[in-house]
């Protein structure tokens, strides 16, 4: 229960960082924080103490639920894709505007 609360707190921290950070790279980092804590949340929810790996034969131990693990592989792959694209975009934005500050970037957008 305490672990779930801590993981939820981590998601909240990530969202707070996404909302308040002024640097583009920091935004990407907080996006990854949210993603990692969502993965942790799912895996913790279906965790059985002393459960076995979901690979047959399970050698006596009761295997854990394989479904959240399969779902989380999808999340990890998509997270990696999104991060790669976002980082490349931030490189391009830096080359174009010379800054990665959200406020300055938004001002430049307004002036055009």
């Amino acid at each position: 229960m305490l672990q779930l609360a801590l993981i939820l707190l981590m998601i909240g921290l990530g969202l707070y960082g996404l909302a308040t950070s002024r640097h583009l790279i920091k935004s990407i980092i907080f996006l990854n924080v949210v993603e990692a804590s969502v993965i942790l949340f799912f895996l913790r929810l279906f965790y059985i103490s002393e459960g076995g790996v979901p690979i047959l034969p399970s050698l006596g131990a009761e295997p854990v639920d394989p479904i959240p693990q399969a779902l989380m592989i999808t999340t990890i792959v998509i997270g990696a894709s999104v991060t790669a694209l976002a980082l490349m975009m931030s490189i391009k934005i830096y080359h174009q505007y010379g800054t990665l500050d959200w406020k300055i970037l938004l001002n430049k957008e307004d002036n055009q």
Binding site: F46, I55, L56, P66, I73
Partner: peptide
């Protein structure tokens, strides 16, 4: 998930049940 654990190998011939789902 219990269904996957019970029937996964017969349905998909995969011993790794995560791979069976994927």
């Amino acid at each position: 998930g219990q269904t996957v654990i019970d029937r996964g190998y017969d349905d998909t011939a995969s011993k790794n049940l995560v791979a069976a789902i994927l």
